[in-house]
Write a protein that binds this DNA or RNA. Structure first.
Lengths: 200, 200
DNA sequence: GTCTATAGGGTGATAGAC
DNA sequence: GTCTATCACCCTATAGAC
């Protein structure tokens, strides 16, 4: 792409997304105005429309980017040997990835109701893809006799809710470090599905 | 209290709270206008201010009422014999109570950021009281050797997140009934804390 | 690429008639 | 107890100057 002298387009775009992510997470999409976002970036409100067609797209793009990043990182995990190791790996990955992106995570599951139908469907499909990865681990583990699960779908949703819950309280520099939190949650996840072996 | 002939004050007040609860849960506090609430009730916007000093109080009152009801219902539970029974009872109670009030639950943990500082502190104190009830069960159970928990506070937060997660997907008339869901979750909660006995 | 100015409309809350 | 009318302000998005 050709550079345009004196332009800031390559820096302003990311800064707008960062400001929007921060403000949406803190105050909520509906409570944040385009003027506030512009003020945080240091431009006037009209300038935002060079980078996004409207406020709704700004939200949808943030959520899509987050979920696509989550899926890509999850797909890049190395193969783990056996159901227990796979579940422990998933639990640690999920917590680590979410702890590092509290704003994006918050938005991704608090602002679903502010998405227009078409955007909602797209985001929901991505979320479900991710859910399916955990469900596959649980299903395989149950088939192999490694887990005791009355209902695979329910266990999937219960585990994701439990693991995602860390973002409600975890703070950098708090009583427990990231590694400890990952270990404790992975252990609880394994126990919750009645894992027989030891792989936490 | 004296009745005023031709007045609707005893019916309009509750209807306003019900409409606000429904709309706040569906679209979010910031996205709902006083005019929308009034329209749902069937009055003009100005009439709302006979029942609430402002929009913020409407939100805070809904959240306080929900949490006070939750605490009262929790306190009214019969004594259960032993740590496993106590935890199973709590898990079933939590799920049952939350499943029956999806709107209030949604608001109570999605709209915290829209509370003014004084209201936030009051609501947060109630939430913490409830959390402490579960934490006491886990602490006692660990002391009695019935549970295996690396960190009591973490286990508390993990279990509450897991149990509250039901409200994200549970629908009346769905694949699983309330009793089944309660049983499955109570079982997972007991396993997650390494319960030794059987009381699910 | 960013600015100022503005169109067109919605907002919370209040005043005064009935 | 409710209505109509209104105040003062904020909103998203666009047009046109620079």
């Amino acid at each position: 792409m050709a550079r345009k002298t004196g332009s800031h387009s390559e820096i302003t775009g990311p800064r707008i997304r960062a400001a929007a992510e921060h403000l949406f997470a803190r105050h909520g999409y509906a409570a944040v105005s385009m003027r506030q976002i512009a003020a945080e970036v240091g431009v006037q409100a009209g300038a935002l429309y060079l980078y996004t067609p409207d406020k709704q797209s700004l939200l949808a793009d943030l959520m899509r980017a987050h979920l696509e990043g989550l899926l890509a990182a999850c797909a890049a995990l190395p193969e783990a040997p056996g159901p227990e190791a796979r579940l422990a790996q998933f639990a640690r990955f999920h917590i680590g990835y979410h702890i590092e992106r509290p704003d994006a995570v918050f938005i991704a599951y608090m602002e679903l109701r502010n998405l227009e139908p078409a955007n909602f469907a797209a985001i929901e499909a991505l979320r479900r893809q991710y859910e399916d990865r955990l469900e596959a681990i649980l299903r395989d583990g149950r088939a192999a006799g490694a887990f005791t699960i009355p209902d695979t779908k329910l266990a999937t949703l219960a585990l994701i809710a439990m693991l995602t819950g860390v973002t409600n309280w975890y703070r950098e520099g708090g009583r427990l470090g990231r590694a400890e939190v990952e270990a404790i949650y992975a252990d609880m996840a394994l126990k919750a599905v009645g894992a027989t072996g030891i792989a936490g």
